[in-house]
Design a protein around this nucleic acid. Structure first.
Lengths: 233, 233
DNA sequence: CGTCCACTACGGGAATCCCCGAATAGTGCT
DNA sequence: AGCACTATTCGGGGATTCCCGTAGTGGACG
């Protein structure tokens, strides 16, 4: 299994696309797609081997908001075979359109997570018999896992600068207190834990809200988690 | 590659240990160890193939606080080969003791992350020549990745609180209100928007908290966002 | 058909949070 | 040194949220 050095790519878009095409050839897949979300930087990376027509159609209809393959695998640790997805309205909606573009609903999505709340999703699909699919998947699942880690690692490291630049600058005290709030502690509790007045705790929370442009503490916690500043607990 | 159904284990400790021993046999390793941390549930799972004497020594000296293999891989996306670890004082300290127990410093740690900030670390090591190590690792890295995902997935789902968190069932009204809260609206605002009493809004929030096992609304919002029930805004 | 349970809905009063003002200490710039 | 800015600390008092109790409705089940 050959790994491309994705980091040194001068033209990343082309490089990643080429990588995915090679991945398809190697693992006998029709298509491959990678989606990487870095909430800390507010960036989203997408690379696909699909045609531009399907890409345009997907973006136009905002399918990323309802796409069940993204929704499920974002919540999973293990790879998600599309056959195990609920055949809901959203599923029918997306895959009915997909089939019009010659894309089948037999696929697999491998989720990868980094330490900053960043998520990478590597999806592959192939139009073939159910038995053949199972056999192919069984053979390449481990390599796919490695590929997913490799591409996500590469993408996130190429994006490191923007992550640092766009990181909201909360003070350590503010992060500390926000983390306790997300852990379900009251302001009084936190004051006791940190041995300061609960009034002071509230001031730090206020400045956190200001910096995150949040109207309420729950909203601030939501944004802090989405930004990878704190972890849910 | 055979996967044990870890979920149906009557005696989990024994089952996981047996799984790790099989993993060693299959991948030609001396030892294997898994450590899983779930901050949402506040639980830590550990399973190793090391002897009880080293286990006791490790715990006694609180090595988990300084162990560089844990420290580095907690911050990495890709697997970490121990040869790339900095030979710091902590490294010397841990591995000097380890060698006294017949454990070598040639190993690899594979990190896996779930959607709740939960981390699983699967480590393997083997005493052999550097060339042989590279060859062995190259052959099994993909399978190790799959194994790490499999065991972490299994451990997290075997945990009671984790099970609840991974499969919450909020009513549509509860999700709707939680989404407004995450958008920074007050209970009064939401009541006006939905044309119901703000008291009722609070009841829905309370049942949302209950279902998500959250002590406060901010914590509930954090968990709801973390598992994709609502979107940050 | 009655029972149980989940969802929806409302209100009183206590607990908590949030807006206001205020003080001290450190940091960087002129 | 003087100034501006931020981080950290604290308190009063009004606004908001939260706990407890109550109640109607509709679906599931023996």
């Amino acid at each position: 299994m050959k790994l491309i050095d994705l980091g040194a790519a001068p033209d990343q878009e082309t490089q990643y696309k080429e990588f995915l095409h090679q991945l398809c050839d190697q693992f006998e897949m029709d298509h491959a797609a990678y989606a990487g979300m870095n909430p800390a930087a507010g960036t989203i990376h997408g690379h696909v081997t699909y045609g531009d027509d399907w890409k345009a159609h997907y973006e136009e209809n905002q399918f990323q908001l309802i796409d069940p393959t993204l929704h499920m695998s974002q919540r999973s640790i293990a790879p998600v075979d599309w056959s195990r997805l609920e055949r809901s309205g959203d599923f029918q909606h997306v895959f009915k359109d997909a089939s019009d573009f010659g894309i089948c609903d037999q696929g697999l999505t491998v989720p990868v997570r980094g330490p900053f709340g960043d998520i990478g999703l590597l999806s592959v699909n192939r139009d073939c018999s159910s038995e053949e699919w199972k056999k192919v998947v069984g053979n390449v699942i481990g390599d796919l896992q490695s590929m997913a880690v490799h591409i996500h690692d590469s993408v996130m490291h190429s994006d490191e600068l923007s992550r640092i630049l766009y990181h909201p600058s909360l003070s350590s005290r503010e992060v500390e207190i926000l983390q306790w709030v997300a852990a379900g502690k009251s302001q009084q509790d936190i004051g006791d834990i940190l041995s300061i007045s609960h009034r002071t705790v509230e001031v730090h929370l206020r400045s956190s809200r200001d910096k995150l442009c949040a109207l309420t503490t729950p909203q601030a916690v939501g944004r802090a988690i989405a930004n990878g500043l704190i972890y849910p607990s």
